[in-house]
Simulated assay, not measured.
Amino acid sequence: MKWWAAGLLTLVVASPAEAAYFDGNQLYAACTTQQGTYNYFQEQSRCLAYIEGISDGLEYGRVTQKSSIRACVPAGVTGGQIMDVVIRYLWQHSEIRHLLASQLVTSALIESFPCR
């Protein structure tokens, strides 16, 4: 067995198991990591990638009419703006941050970018 394959197998076996879902508290923590901390770029990237993934999924469902869940993010809105919308929503709705992050991101986008 190659040395890299053995190392990868060790890493996978030794890694702690995580919950099967990402909740709003975890997303909020990632999105609000303070600049200057050792994991700032990692957490900001995690936040943005997660939110953009949900946003892209909603857009795909809307365009292909495979979903009745609708958010109409206007052309030209940046990933940073979408991230700001979601962070604000999570901050304003701290009482439900224990729910699935995907559900909360969807709610934030529908509320901020309703289809007309």
Rank of each mutant, 00 (worst) to 15 (best):
Y60M: 15
M1K: 12
D56C: 00
F22Y: 15
E18L: 15
F41R: 14
R116P: 06
V86F: 07
A19I: 03
Y21F: 14
Y50E: 07
L99I: 02
D56S: 13
S15Q: 00
G61A: 07
S55E: 09
H93N: 15
Y38V: 15
M83N: 12
A19T: 05
A5C: 09
D23T: 00
Y21M: 13
C47H: 08
W4K: 13
Y60Q: 14
I82P: 04
L11G: 04
R116K: 12
Q35L: 08
I51V: 15
T64Q: 15
R116E: 08
I54V: 15
R62P: 11
S55G: 14
Q92M: 02
S107G: 08
W91Y: 09
V85R: 03
L58K: 00
G80V: 03
F41Q: 14
V85I: 12
K66V: 05
K2E: 09
I54E: 09
V12Y: 11
T10D: 06
A49F: 11
I96S: 10
I54P: 02
G76C: 02
S67Y: 08
T37E: 12
R62I: 11
G76K: 01
C115V: 06
V105N: 03
N25T: 00
S107L: 13
T78S: 15
T78N: 08
V77R: 00
E43K: 06
I96R: 15
V73R: 05
R70A: 07
I87K: 10
